[in-house]
Amino acid sequence: MSEPIIAEDGVELSADDKKRRNKRSVAIALGLIFLVALFYLMTIFKFGPELLNKPF
């Protein structure tokens, strides 16, 4: 575990911290994309053709 660099105006992330933060950000983005796809699939497969049979 790398020691964080403490600057006078706050905390500066080390290279390792930044790398880990990037990985977490990518994971959150992928998670959100996955959830969007999941809810889309659920809607299509749960309701099926009934989705198109609604009175306008």
Binding site: P4, I6, E8, G10, V11, D17, R21, K23
Partner: peptide, 24 residues
């Protein structure tokens, strides 16, 4: 400066996550 470093160290402990996705 020492006081600032102590405060920052406490903040680091609470704010900077060491976690990677594989840890979750």
């Amino acid at each position: 400066r020492t006081e600032l470093q102590a405060l920052a160290a406490t903040a680091v402990e609470h704010r900077i996550s060491q976690a990677e996705p594989k840890d979750f």
